[in-house]
Design a binder for these strands. Structure first.
Length: 264
DNA sequence: CATCTTGTTACGTT
DNA sequence: AAACGTAACAAGAT
């Protein structure tokens, strides 16, 4: 589920725990979500550490702790963060559980596509520092986007939008929302977009990213009426502009929904 | 039972 | 060498 704004929503859920010590750790250490962790004893490192702050970039989250510890989280397809009572007992999919005096922090992920990383050092880990600029930052410019589209000029634009190295945080529904607003057919090759169409696409990316952050991150509400988002799941979706039945097909292995009238 | 899934990555091919 | 297509990962929903 989690794309840009949903990741931000889950990150904020643990805000209540900042400044507080982790008193105990429970983990399903053999699960795939821990595949990036090399050190044994990592649960001992976390136990006793204080959770200082957190940040989300794209679909990744980084938590800074005392003792020069950093906790990286990716929610994959089905991951989520929750806050439970102090006496919480982990269930089947609750793979990382951090106990504090007043609450319990839970990372759960049924499909195990998520990823948990631990890093120890003065500064944030390299995988974090080398992330591409956020879609809402000054560094995400039309020129940068143009270069990325050119590098992937033989790839359908739908697939290019899903590349996290160019469009961090964009997932399947955001990509469809962006293309519908930019009136670009999802199969269009990335290199075939004229400069003016690229500019429209860039603006749609900013609008969708900003709107998603505004409407979804505070409380996981759906975007307002008129968003493509509200029509693209299940069959029977209608274009918010024309009421025309939406087209649906698999593009680069991902289900894609579009309006054949808006996006010729 | 078959098919689907809001994500990434390994691997073989172009 | 870089980019591309596809299968694989895993488990639940329909």
């Amino acid at each position: 589920m989690p794309e840009l704004a949903e990741v931000e929503y889950y990150r904020r859920r643990w805000d209540c725990a900042l400044g507080q010590r982790i008193s105990a750790v429970a983990a399903h250490a053999e699960k795939r979500v821990f595949r990036s962790i090399s050190t044994r004893r990592w649960t001992e490192l976390l136990r006793g550490s204080i959770l200082h702050s957190s940040e989300a970039r794209g679909k990744l989250m980084l938590f800074r702790l005392s003792n020069k510890l950093w906790l990286g989280l990716h929610l994959g397809m089905t991951g989520e963060l929750r806050v439970e009572r102090p006496d919480f007992k982990p269930a089947k999919h609750d793979h990382l559980v951090l106990y504090q005096n007043a609450r319990t922090l839970v990372f759960s992920d049924p499909r195990l596509f998520g990823r948990i990383r631990i890093h120890q050092g003065e500064v944030a880990p390299a995988w974090w520092s080398s992330l591409p600029p956020s879609l809402l930052s000054k560094e995400f410019t039309p020129a940068r986007m143009a270069g990325f589209l050119h590098r992937h000029r033989r790839l359908p634009i739908k697939a290019t939008l899903l590349l996290q190295s160019g469009f961090p945080g964009v997932g399947n529904w955001m990509a469809d929302e962006i293309l519908w607003r930019a009136r670009v057919h999802p199969r269009t090759l990335s290199g075939a977009l004229e400069e003016d169409r690229q500019r429209i696409l860039w603006r749609a990316i900013r609008l969708v990213a900003r709107g998603a952050m505004k409407h979804i991150s505070p409380d996981f509400s759906d975007p307002p009426r008129g968003w493509f988002f509200n029509e693209r799941w299940g069959n029977g979706g209608k274009c918010p502009v024309h009421g025309v039945a939406l087209a649906r097909d698999s593009i680069s292995g991902r289900t894609t929904v579009w309006c054949s009238r808006c996006q010729p």
